[in-house]
Design a protein around this nucleic acid. Structure first.
Lengths: 376, 376
DNA sequence: CTTGCTAGTGTGACCGGTCACAACCTCCCG
DNA sequence: CGGGAGGTTGTGACCGGTCACACTAGCAAG
């Protein structure tokens, strides 16, 4: 079990002996607290340098009962959410002297449970959970039992013991609908996953009031459910485009489904945005790379990570809720997949529109199109 | 410093007292070693369950000098490499009872150094380093000083003390060149980053022999250097397309540059692959989503993670090199951005080709095109 | 009966820090 | 000159496990 003795570790007592002081004085030195006589400090300083002493985090954790480490568990490292959230959280935590450790559950509830338990046992001081696959109550209960604060990301959780950081989906949904309505669209479809997304819940529920707000009645026939994937978006698109009275615009649950829809359109020679305007959701890195560049909703991923970290720091310090559970704002990124309905025949008959758009530099820049302007 | 006493932790001695045995017997029980009388085992078992005892990893680490934790430091969590490598490594390590902790240096050498030092001090048992920004020798020296084995990912490092896992770039370069030459291309351009990529070194150096092998002479004028980014690829493309005698094919350093080039082509109404065949590198998730779907080289990211983990396990166990530093094989993914040069005018004059290709289901499936076949 | 071996269990030190507390010194004030 | 205050340092316990070793009982072999 034990490693080969190798080079024995330099301990605080070795330093003490070398500097002819007590181990406690060395401890004081490395923690920079208490008063140490300048001469003593010098001696200890030299001893530390000479012996190449590094304090052991483990020993320190054992007694202080703090690891200065926070775990971030996400459903999917490959998701475009992960890196930005991690960066946001890390920046805040690092500033407070904490180290962030990342963990992926791969969308597998069992693995998630295992990882969370693992982190709890390894005594992270706190946990941030994104898009949990397990029942949040259960996870929260585990954390409470272990006495470790936990913040849920991007998810509303009932129950007083659970903290969460939350995004203003409903408001953004309203904004998207208002944008399309403002362009003149009256028949707006919704492409959503069959099962509700753990991350954001049922987007439909926000769709209804948003439509009402824009003066449009909800239309059951314009809600298309399918798998939350490229294929799902494609399949939903097939059904959508087969309709006699097609919608003139579609809001997709996320960019991936939107791109699937885009492909269904390309296959049926339906021009985007001339024949159908499409809005995605998330602003994934390649949303600006598809043809045409996708109008979508940017989610403040980085800020979300920051907020979660701040919330967790408060919790760990036992501070009262410093950050109210305010929803973070979203931003509509207007690219080239939307325009007023019934656009004139702009000459690209039979071919995909937007072919000449360049998306270099983020893609949200130039519009350079011959036909009608997309009002603001 | 110390947390509020909360609910005092249940220790091994509490369990021992409850079960009326010695703490050592409990230790034996939780480690499942040695012989314990069935009756005693039962008592301890019950005590553990009743008291809700969980052993402290920290205390265990302190004495065993092992944390059963491995760190993975990557230059960029957002890179398409990261998730797959992490998954590969995690799978192997988890099977050996190790926990993987992820860390991102955000392409910042200073941050990288800090993170590595941090992990070293936190006593991870081993480290995997991907695409280091700092001089690898320096990092290796740090690790050696700390007595912690380290494996470099995807990078050839000189020096006997440094282990590395390595990919067969040269062979794959040759394969790509052979593929294009086989299609009939004679003027093949290379779009590379201005500064050599830490990850793969100078791809040019493998390009030359690969060309020679295909019976083609190197042509200095056909090497285009620019930033390793979408914009870089775009800019290089501008220069490439401005040439009088244009190349008929281009190999790009990675998919991102390839997509930039693709955009330059679209803007100049240069048809891909009719007027220019393009090969990318990496097979990023959206390589199949652009127009036309990109022919590229799949890098065995998952396998790379696995190999690194296995290598590290050997190192940590003091085992001899069980895995030779064999390069992992790459795979050419043929999509729709390549075809023989000088393709006939297939009627899509002035517009981007490949518009009707569907890429649902990974994109490498259907080809369904009117014009000539792309031989194998 | 002694010896040796094995299974089963207990004792106390130890890992490398921090904490509580005491001891000492110096200085200043009444 | 006594005594409190405050700066500086040392002592030993402690965090929660593991390790080395000692010890006992039971049984077979010599």
């Amino acid at each position: 079990m034990r490693l080969p003795p190798s080079r024995k570790r330099v301990t605080i007592r070795d330093v003490a002996r070398f500097a002819r002081v007590s181990h406690q004085t060395v401890s004081r030195f490395i923690n920079g607290v208490d008063h140490i006589a300048p001469l003593t400090r010098r001696r200890v300083e030299q001893a530390v340098a000479k012996l190449g002493f590094h304090p052991s985090h483990i020993a320190r954790s054992l007694v202080s009962r703090q690891t200065k480490t926070v775990g971030l568990v996400m459903g999917d490292v490959a998701s475009p959410f992960f890196p930005d959230v991690a960066r946001g959280a890390e920046d805040v935590l690092a500033a407070a002297g904490y180290c962030l450790i990342l963990s992926s559950s791969r969308r597998d509830p069992e693995r998630e449970l295992r990882n969370v338990r693992h982190l709890l046992e390894r005594s992270t001081d706190g946990l941030i959970l994104g898009a949990p696959r397990c029942p949040p109550d259960e996870l929260a209960a585990m954390a409470r039992r272990a006495g470790i604060p936990m913040v849920f990301l991007n998810r509303e959780v009932k129950g007083s013991h659970v903290a969460a950081v939350w995004i203003g989906w409903p408001a953004a949904t309203a904004e998207v609908v208002a944008y399309l309505a403002g362009l003149g669209h009256r028949r707006i479809a919704l492409v959503v996953p069959s099962r509700s997304d753990a991350r954001v819940g049922n987007r439909e529920d926000w769709y209804r009031p948003a439509l009402a707000q824009a003066g449009l009645g909800p239309d059951r026939a314009l809600i298309f459910r399918d798998a939350m994937s490229l294929e799902g978006g494609y399949a939903a698109g097939q059904r959508l485009l087969a309709l006699d009275r097609r919608p003139t615009a579609a809001i997709c649950h996320n960019d991936v489904m939107a791109i699937g829809l885009l492909q269904a359109c390309a296959e049926r020679q339906v021009r985007v945005p001339h024949d159908l305007s499409i809005v995605g959701w998330d602003d994934v890195p390649y949303a600006s790379l598809v043809t045409p560049p996708l109008t979508t909703v940017r989610v403040p991923r980085y800020e979300l990570g920051q907020a979660a970290a701040r919330r967790l720091l408060d919790l760990m310090a036992g501070r009262p809720v410093h950050l109210p559970e305010l929803p973070l704002a979203l931003e509509l990124v207007r690219r080239q997949s939307c325009r007023p309905p019934g656009g004139g025949s702009s000459g690209t008959r039979g071919f995909r529109s937007g072919a000449s758009d360049s998306v270099v530099k983020g893609g949200a820049r130039r519009t350079r199109r011959s036909s009608s302007s997309s009002s603001s």
